[in-house]
């Protein structure tokens, strides 16, 4: 991902909502597929965060945390679900131009990006 090149507004402290907690508690431990977002040098960090907020309904703090994980670690699991659910998310991510893949969750499912993908 690439960093901002335009000076952005400095008033972006998001209003915290209960969304993060409620989506987290929905994640059943036996849900078997992950949606993975991969880093690339083109997509803007702000845009990736916007997509996570607007599509999944994640609060700004969670969206930024996942975005930073993509940026620093090269990939992040941003949603779990059934195969059909994560495939639907993947098509939506491709529509936005993000590089998304689906994978079967391994035994120790991702330690981050908990929370079933949910439309906001």
């Amino acid at each position: 991902m690439t960093i901002s090149v335009a000076p952005g507004p400095d008033t972006r402290e998001g209003i915290r909502t209960g969304t993060a907690e409620s989506t987290d508690s929905l994640a059943a431990p036996d849900i078997p597929w992950n949606l993975v977002i991969w880093n690339d040098p083109v997509n803007l960090m702000s845009y990736v965060s916007y997509v996570f907020q607007s599509y999944f309904g994640y609060p700004e703090s969670k969206a930024n945390k996942l975005m930073m994980e993509v940026h620093k670690k090269g990939r992040s699991i941003v949603a779990h679900g059934s195969k059909e659910q994560v495939e639907r998310h993947a098509v939506a991510m491709h529509g936005f131009g993000l590089w998304a893949t689906v994978e079967k969750a391994s035994g120790a499912a991702g330690t981050s990006g908990r929370g079933k993908g949910k439309r906001g």
């Binding site: 901002s4 090149v5 507004p9 008033t11 998001g14 803007l44 702000s46 845009y47 916007y50 907020q53």
Partner: peptide
């Protein structure tokens, strides 16, 4: 490329601001 990057960044910042206002 740099022009389109600048334009997209300013657009996304405006979009994030409008999302915040509507929350």
């Amino acid at each position: 490329y740099n022009f389109t990057t600048w334009l997209q960044e300013s657009l996304v910042q405006a979009m994030l601001q409008s999302m915040e206002t509507r929350r």
